[in-house]
Design a protein around this nucleic acid. Structure first.
Lengths: 189, 189
DNA sequence: AATTATAACTAACAGCATTAGTTTTATCAA
DNA sequence: TTGATAAAACTAATGCTGTTAGTTATAATT
């Protein structure tokens, strides 16, 4: 109840708490006030762990991208080709569905050009590139294809979350059809 | 400089001002304080025109969706099939590029389930459906395809804006390749 | 000409991020 | 064992935000 507690708060505990708020109530509810309340400390004390709200958002973005990467990497184990593409696609969308707050935070860094953010994000790009190597695409086509997949997955997740898909039409089925179509389209010339 | 001016402020002027702030400085800068300053009035006066920040965001979303629809509808005039799909795709991405703030506001309504927001958004969906009719897709496939196109276009625009595409690779070229691939994949063989 | 409704205003408040300065205590060196 | 240091909490205060309440001047209407 006083300065310098027995065991100090770890950054990871703070990020977990922030992620919980984000998933439960939305990213706009992860304020320093709410976060401090959840942790049982006062808002200014958070400044001992990160440099203000912008820095928290950046750290949450990196934290979220890393969690997403782990899920995708797991999904890609032991599969290849179409099966691998479908596996990571489903894993991506399911992650965004189960962790809407963390996923949203993934794109909420104050400066996405930030080196650390880019570096973490490039792990996902690299993973996708590696999976697409099965298709032996020529030249820059593979890179364009990666952009295509990321667009589809992010766009689908984003629209699903914001209620953009209103029609009574199975979402997982949509995803499967969309991914299959894009794979087939990329494959042939 | 006093109550009840000669000519009252119109809602459209307010939305234009808000859109200008959004495009120029980002949506997070369209605060009631900034908006009032730009209009030469005091923040509380804005409550005569809409019911708080949430209502402004909703009105901005509708305003943005309508402007986007106009652009897409124009792009679809006098073209059909692949050409039409490519035309509205480019128009969509260019709109998001030229009006990043307005585009972002398009998805920032407090409640995307809102009837008025859904109704405006369905105009874009309908337009896309009509264009895809050229492909004579069977059953629900057309609806899944619409979801695919929206995912690609929104995802691409969103990632481009947030700096997600880091590589030195032409963006318009990527879009063209992605759309062509998806069209080919969706077309029945 | 008198009334009414409108759209501005001022004043005040709560909640937010943030800064400055303080205090307690765990850790480490002498 | 003791003393110094640094870490991590704290209180207090500031300026910004959206918002509400109540006021006033004027355009429009009766």
């Amino acid at each position: 109840m006083s300065p310098r507690p027995k065991v100090a708060l770890e950054l990871i505990e703070i990020l977990d708490a922030a992620a919980e708020i984000a998933d439960q109530f939305g990213t706009q509810e992860v304020t320093l006030a709410n976060l401090a309340k959840k942790l049982g400390i006062r808002p200014p004390s958070l400044y001992n762990h990160f440099d203000g709200l912008g820095d928290l958002r950046k750290k949450m973005a990196i934290y979220g991208i890393e969690r997403l990467y782990e899920v995708l990497a797991q999904a890609a184990i032991g599969v290849a080709g179409d099966e691998a593409v479908m596996a990571i696609s489903k894993a991506y969308v399911h992650f965004a569905r189960e962790h809407p707050g963390i996923y949203e935070a993934t794109l909420m860094a104050p400066n996405m050009e930030d080196e650390e953010v880019q570096l973490t994000g490039s792990k996902i790009v690299d993973l996708t590139v590696r999976i697409l190597q099965a298709y032996r695409l020529e030249g820059e086509t593979a890179l364009h294809a990666v952009r295509g997949f990321r667009s589809i997955l992010h766009g689908f997740s984003s629209l699903e979350k914001s209620g953009g898909f209103k029609m009574a039409l199975n979402l997982d089925e949509s995803l499967e059809i969309i991914i299959k179509a894009f794979i087939n389209g990329i494959r042939k010339n």
